[in-house]
Design a protein around this nucleic acid. Sequence first.
DNA 1: CGTTTTTTTGCTTGTTTGTGCAAGTTTGTC
DNA 2: GACAAACTTGCACAAACAAGCAAAAAAACG
Lengths: 248, 248
Amino acid sequence: MLKKERHDFIMRQINLHNRVLTSDLVQLLNVSEDTIRRDLQELVDEGLLYKVHGGALSKSYHSSFDDSTVYARDSKIAIAKKATNLIKDGMVILTGGGTTILELVKQLPQGLTATFFTISPLVAVELAKYNNIEVILIGGLFSKNSQVTYGGHVITQLAEIKADLCLMGTSALHPEEGLTDTYWEINQLKKAMLACSKRTAVLCISEKLDIALRLKVCPIESISYLITELDVNDDLLANYRTKELNIL
Amino acid sequence: MLKKERHDFIMRQINLHNRVLTSDLVQLLNVSEDTIRRDLQELVDEGLLYKVHGGALSKSYHSSFDDSTVYARDSKIAIAKKATNLIKDGMVILTGGGTTILELVKQLPQGLTATFFTISPLVAVELAKYNNIEVILIGGLFSKNSQVTYGGHVITQLAEIKADLCLMGTSALHPEEGLTDTYWEINQLKKAMLACSKRTAVLCISEKLDIALRLKVCPIESISYLITELDVNDDLLANYRTKELNIL
DNA sequence: CGTTTTTTTGCTTGTTTGTGCAAGTTTGTC
DNA sequence: GACAAACTTGCACAAACAAGCAAAAAAACG
């Protein structure tokens, strides 16, 4: 087996499981530990993964699991600022959950008149601070991980909504694979949210770009706006600029 | 499991529950106490949590724990403590909103296995911190005043629920007039909550006793438990002791 | 084809890291 | 103030690691 093939194999494992063990790779690839270690080091040098004692972890692993001290808060605030420009008086807006969306909601202009549907209790509470915003919280099972409501009941209710704009955070975005996710329930949820909104804005910090996870939500064409903390002309966005996608 | 993963796991637990017990982590992660202690110490060195005898606490929890603005907080904590005794494993419980209920939810025993329906987003978020509690948030219009969902849609959904116990705070209780309220919508809501629960516990600080408001929710006979911060033999409760009402 | 150069791999050595055990100390509780 | 649980410290052992070296494989060249 060629080195390049090994690297690809390792990266597939990483994207699938968020981690690999050196010992596992030794068995699976039938090479010495040293070779694996060298492979991992090279992949680290390319910035593709994160090495720890005993193996390696996916780079996106952190962002999805560690909201300890609101990871990358500055970036998220910058994104939120940009996103507020999409919101106009009279709109019907549907939002997901997550720290980025929450940041956005905190930055809405006072006096904005709009209707918000949301699956996030925290977002609902924050929205309630605005006098002229009508808030509808979509009920259902409550996810301990994502802190949003989910499940069949939520999806049924989403089907009854017609929103002008859907705002969602994301755990991964890839120019070819589009929007992807790790959990089946969240995947279904996002599909339903997309389906009931005229346009969709994806709020995505740059380190989640160019990553594809297990489950596909939608192709990139289904997204209307991509909002990152980067400058519109940043090189990292080159692959997205070709698509008919409004980049903010 | 890799060390880094353990650390992430611990931080997730901390963010979820605001605290972790060393003994729990030993079981959950299947490593020795020593390892857990070392992990905790390392996380302390990174400034991510506080270590205490028996486990560790979230850092943000303490700094943000000045809910001292909550009116009559001590009384509410006392009430909450009593109310937890009503809750047993396996129960299906319906809760309203309000600071007293929120306080109660914070005091539930770790490891409680139960199903909670709630109309309060904040209660839902708090409940989500317990591993063995299933949380269903009832969705609908979100009230800026009461911080709960309300309206026809909520009432329709309540009609589908069969709860063992309903926990609600109250703005007034009167020996003759029973449970009363000021707002039409909340009135309707409470009626619906009562209707779908076998028993109802009313959490009521003493200064709201003997007050009757505009709209009648139910006679005092419809209530199973009255929980105040007072001693069961307090004179203020005399008028209620005559009724067939369990006073705690 | 053979020979030289480069790359890749596995082995050896010595080092670091992670974990559990044992002994003694502190802390919380009744 | 006694007892158990939780904690600290030091130590030992195994697993994982880094660096240098030599054999093997692949590539380059005439």
